[in-house]
Write a protein that binds this DNA or RNA. Structure first.
Lengths: 161, 161
DNA sequence: CGCTTGCTTGGAGTGCACTCCAAGGTCATA
DNA sequence: TATGACCTTGGAGTGCACTCCAAGCAAGCG
C-alpha cells in the first residue's frame, strides 16, 4: 500500500532525473506527521487553496478523503502523491476533465492499465511538443532581446516591434 | 519599414535556431499577395478566428488595421509578423493584458526600449522555468509509462495510481 | 436584379478553473 | 469554559480568453 505507480516515493522520483539544473531538493518537504493531515497542512504543502482541494474532491479528481470522527478531512501521504501528480499534469496544460478521466480509470482498477498507458503516452507527446514550441519561442525572444540590447544606445531608424 | 525587431523576416527568424529537430519549413507560408489580406485570409494563415482577430484589435493588442475604401480590414505583412509574435507569447502563457502592455510600449516609440527589453527578459526567464518544469513532468510521465508498460502482462498487487 | 458570400458593429454569452460566501459546527489554548 | 482560529456545506460569483449573435452593408456573379 501507499506506493506510487512506480513504487517510489515522490522524493525519490524527483531526485532521479537531472536534466538541466542539478536536482533541487524536493521542494515539497512533507509535513511528515502521522499521515493524517488537515486541509490547511495540505494547503501549505501544495500551494493550492482549501477551496480548490474541496473542489477537486467534488468533481472526482480526488477520491473521497478520509474523515476524522467529526467529519473533517484528513489527508494521507498517498493523497499528497496524487496531488503532486495532478500538479505536474496541470503544468502540461491538461484539462481538468482529462485528469478526472484518469482518476476514474484508477478507481476502476487493474483492467484499465491499457487505457491509462495510452493516456499517459498521449500526454507525453503533448509535453514534448510544448517543449519544442517553447524552444522556438525562446529563439524569437533571444533575437528580439539582443536587438534591444544592441539598440540601447545606438537607436536605428527602422520600424521596430 | 516592414522589418521585424531584428530586421529579419519571420521565415528567416524561424530557420535560425535548430535546437532539437532539424528546422521545419516555416509552417505559415504567407498568402503573399499584395500585402493587403482580408480577414479570412488571415484566419487561414494564423488559425485564429475572425472574432478573435477583431477582438485583439478592440483591446489594443493590435494597431488599428488598414481599411479598404468600404471599411473592410486589410492586413499587411507586418500585422502578420505581429500576430506571429503574439502567438508565440501566448504559448508561453503570457496573459493577454501583458501583451497589450507590450503593444502599448511599441506604440509609444523609441523611448520605451528599456522597458520592452526588461519585459522580454522577464518573459525569457518564465519560458526557461516552464521548460524546466516540463522536463520534470516528463520524467514523472516516463516513470509511470514504463511502469504500465512493464505491468501490461505481469500485474502486480500493489496499489497503483 | 437577385442571390450568395463575406464583412461590419456593439454587446451579450460561453467554458474553464477556480474563488468566495453564509451559516454553522469543531478544536486548541488560556 | 470561553474565545478565536479552523473546518464544513451547497451554491453563487469571478476573471480570463475568447465566441457568438443580430442586423445590416458590400462585392461578385448569372
Amino acid at each position: 500500500m501507499q506506493t506510487t505507480a512506480t513504487g517510489l516515493t515522490q522524493a525519490e522520483e524527483t531526485a532521479t532525473r537531472t536534466d538541466i539544473c542539478a536536482a533541487p531538493p524536493p521542494r515539497h518537504p512533507r509535513p511528515d506527521g502521522q499521515d493524517r493531515y488537515t486541509i490547511s497542512e495540505v494547503v501549505a504543502f501544495t500551494g493550492l487553496t482549501a477551496h480548490t482541494l474541496r473542489w477537486y474532491e467534488r468533481i472526482g479528481l480526488m477520491d473521497h478523503i478520509d474523515r476524522s470522527h467529526t467529519g473533517q478531512r484528513r489527508y494521507a501521504n498517498r493523497d499528497l502523491d496524487w496531488l503532486d501528480l495532478v500538479g505536474k499534469l496541470r503544468l502540461t496544460g491538461m484539462p481538468v476533465a482529462d485528469m478526472v478521466r484518469y482518476a476514474q480509470l484508477v478507481r476502476e482498477g487493474d483492467t484499465t492499465y491499457q487505457e491509462r498507458h495510452e493516456l499517459l503516452e498521449a500526454t507525453r507527446r503533448d509535453v514534448l511538443a510544448r517543449i519544442a514550441e517553447l524552444h522556438d519561442t525562446l529563439a524569437v525572444l533571444d533575437r528580439k532581446i539582443s536587438f534591444y540590447a544592441d539598440a540601447q544606445h545606438a537607436r536605428g531608424t527602422e520600424r521596430t516591434r
